[in-house]
Design a binder for these strands. Structure first.
Lengths: 138, 138
DNA sequence: GTCTATGCAAAGTTTTTGCACCTGG
DNA sequence: CCAGGTGCAAAAACTTTGCATAGAC
């Protein structure tokens, strides 16, 4: 399960398992798409003295060992999610800022075309797709 | 031509045409994908006293009146380009940071699918597409 | 016991804001 | 002349870093 994976991966790379790391990891898992600040607040439920700089440092470590990844959903801060979190596209409305999650299947053609024509292996959910939602087009 | 369009659009919305605005607009046109800092440096060739905060304020105005748009090519600052600049997809390699420009045609299927299934009008070139380039996959 | 990780505070960056002066129309 | 625009400086927001101490192993 997750906790063991966390412990294992950390040890493999010479990192230690601390309560703060576990709290940050759990917060990422719980929030699905959290910013640094949101992850801090969530993780502080488990450890109220947790510091923002620890969140920054741990997200870096968790990303390095491949358990966590980040994506850019809007114009602001990146959001963090578990690496095994099933991928989906994020459609962000430029006007009302609503975020729609849709299946990555829609992008299969694009992914295949870019691979065939340019040898490029797309990480399709890293950036959101900007546009106008149905409501805001009127 | 561009200069007239700039003047017209500004006046239509009650804005004034200043040398600084023209310098910023020209810098955006010249750079194609410039950050605030890059636009400042380019615009200062025409007006050496131009201030960074003026660049921020003018890019906001130029974007509001629809002459300029911004895109997110990497994890850092956004870049600005003319609104009529022909769209192309940016493929950014996560590893070597190389940026490939490819035709938007590759995304036609995705754009059509998102419109048909979700009524979403995609602005496909607003965010870069992240992934691994041919070389970095080995 | 050793060496990494943490909390705190300070320093860096980047972007925004307030204000007196300047300038386009 | 007058409202909007600019430069400058200060503030705000966001992120990173240094250092003494705590804690994992």
């Amino acid at each position: 399960m997750n906790a063991d994976l966390l412990s294992e991966r950390l040890k493999d790379r010479g990192y230690r398992l601390t309560n703060q790391r576990r709290a940050v990891f759990d917060a990422v898992a719980h929030l699905e798409h959290g910013t640094h600040e949101e992850i801090l607040r969530q993780a502080q439920i488990a450890d109220s003295t947790l510091n923002l700089s620890t969140v920054y440092r741990n997200l870096e470590v968790l990303e390095e060992i491949g358990l966590v990844r980040h994506a850019h959903l809007g114009h602001g801060s990146p959001t963090y999610h578990l690496a095994d979190h099933h991928a989906h596209l994020h459609l962000v409305c430029s006007k009302c800022k609503e975020v729609l999650e849709v299946s990555v299947d829609a992008a299969d053609g694009l992914v295949a075309a870019l691979h065939a024509d340019h040898g490029f292996a797309v990480d399709i959910d890293h950036f959101a797709i900007q546009g106008l939602c149905k409501k805001c087009q009127n």
